[in-house]
Every structure is written in C-alpha cells, then in structure tokens.
Write a protein that binds this DNA or RNA. Sequence first.
DNA 1: CCTCTCCCAGGAGACGGG
DNA 2: GCCCGTCC
DNA 3: ACATCCTGGGAGAG
Length: 334
Amino acid sequence: MGIKGLTKLLNDEAPGCIKEAELSSYTGRKVAIDASMALYQFIIAIRSGSEGFAAQVLTNEQGEITSHIQGIFNRTIRMLTNGIKPVYVFDGKPPTLKSGELAKRMARRQEAQSKLEAAESVEDKEKYGKRLTRVTRKHSEDAMKLLRLMGVPVVQAPCEAEAQCAELARAGKVWATGTEDMDALCFRTPKLLRRLTFGAANKQPVMEVDYQKAIDGLGLTYEQFVDLCILCGCDYTDTIKGIGPKTALKLVRTHGSIANVVRSLDKKKYQVPAGWIKGSNPAPSAKPDEATEGEDGLEGEGASNKENSEKNESAPPESDEKKKAEDAEKADDA
DNA sequence: CCTCTCCCAGGAGACGGG
DNA sequence: GCCCGTCC
DNA sequence: ACATCCTGGGAGAG
C-alpha cells in the first residue's frame, strides 16, 4: 500500500511537512485507527511456535483465533499508557478496490485456494490455508466487544475505514489518523501519524505528516495532489513508464490536472496503460474535472476519478455522518 | 537530473523475566 | 538493553 | 506471511 516515492517527494519538495517526534509528545491526542488493518496484521503476525514446527495462531478452546484480541489489547493498553486516546474505525461496506490490486489479490487467493484443494500433505494444506487468511466479521465483532469493555470508542464507517478516519480528523473529532499508509493523505486527514505503535523503547520515532503543509509545499490543490498520487503510482492503478514522482509533480504543476497531463503526453514516448484515466480515453466522460470534485458527496475517494465508468459507490448519506459524529463524541468520555 | 531495475538486508505484535 | 519464550 | 513476503536503500545503466 501507499504512494510510490511520496515520502521522499514530500521531504524534497515540501520541506517541513514531515517531522519526527517522541511518542510522549502526543499525550492527550485522540487518534483514529483503521481497525481492520490492525486486525489483519495481528492475525498474520501473532503466532506461536514459529521456531518449532507448527506456526499457529493463538486460539481458544474451541479452536477459534484469538491473536487479534491479544494484539488489540496490548496495543490499546500501550497507547492509553502513553496518554494517547485511540478511536478504532471499522470498515463498512467493502470499498470498491480498484481493479488492479483487487484482481491481484483475488488471483492470489484463488491460486492458494486451488492449491489447497490439490494439496495432499498436511504441511501444504497448512501452508496454503494460511494464505487465505482474512479478517472476518467475527474478528471485528470480537475486537469491538473488547474495545467497548475497555471503554475505548469504536466507529462503524459507512465504507472505507481510512476515509472515515480522515473525516473524523477533519471534523476535529480526533487530532490525527494513525496509519502506516500514506494513502490516508488522499483522504485529507489534517495530520497523519506513522509508527505510532512503536514506543519509547523502540528505535524509530513517530513520523508526523501535515497535510496542509504538504500540499502548500507542493503548490497543489487537493485535486491536483490526488492526481499526483495516481501518477506516482498507487495500489489501484498501473503507472506510466518513465514518469516518477519528480516528473509527475512537474507535469501536474504545468497542466493542472491528470486529464490534461495525459492529453498532452506524447503517446509514442509514453505508454499509457489501457483503460486509464479519462483523459486517455477517446470517449470523454462528461467533464473530467468535475469527477474529481467532492461535490457528489463521496468522501475522500479522490482516487475514484479513474473509475467513473464503474458503479459509483453509493455515497455515504448524511445519516452516516451524524452517526459517526455521535460515536466520536463517546471518544471524549474515554 | 530522473527513472528503472536489480540486489540485498532487514523487518514483519507486544510483553516481560533473566 | 538484549534475548527469547510466551500470549490461547 | 516466518521453510515467506514485502519494503526500502543503494548501485548502476539508460
């Protein structure tokens, strides 16, 4: 996940938008965290007996996974100990992941699936079974229950958790989004905190990115920033060979939008992937520029301007906005 | 100057006793 | 502070 | 996904 070379680009072109600090300097801050992402990592990472034979997840007497409970518990305790107030945000409707990454995951998953069925040895079955790991509804419910018992606020996002985290931050309900994924900036979270899980005892400090300083430093609008990220290469689209972060920035600055950039490119020199941005498509879809505006009610999903032909995700209705706000109020009590 | 490719090292959750 | 064993 | 897999940094060519 992430935007290729974005961290370096920001360091080079928007100096000051990234800074590092001790965990202790965030005492008292409320931070929104994508719960599903955390759960997935815990389920993958927390295993016992990795040195011996069977690398197994932690389970209860019924054989159900409990790694995620252990992980969420420890991490939450750690943050609370440091005076940081987490707000866990759970995914709602599965996001319309873009064709690229989604297809890739699907392919990998199906490959594992078929290999699992073909597997004869116990080892193989175990091996391929692991590749099918995913966060289930039950895992999420377990975590929600735990968090509620701990008095930690939980938010149910209408769609993508990352987008919701950014909205909470924009609304001032939390101070920042805690994530390892720079994609969060594309949802306009005012502050992004990386390596928040590493404590004082650990090596790297917390990394803090200021969204406003970032786009100001780059000299771009929000829409242009999203376009830049797409050009740099994100999870959802292929990149154009020969165009890296520096060139992408220059192009967006010069032409103003990704549609204009693509239009102006020498197609003989640069291979634009099939089915790319509308500007590359002979059939113009309405007004390209408007597709990137947030006026349709879609939160964040700026990157969705490339999928305007697909079923547009039903926009998060106002009621969801209120619901999340209410939930976040509880954060104040914690 | 910028990008691409290749290679390789390191990390992949957190705690706590020794 | 590091090294590992442990967490279920 | 720990008998693997992914990422980031550096070298070197185009």
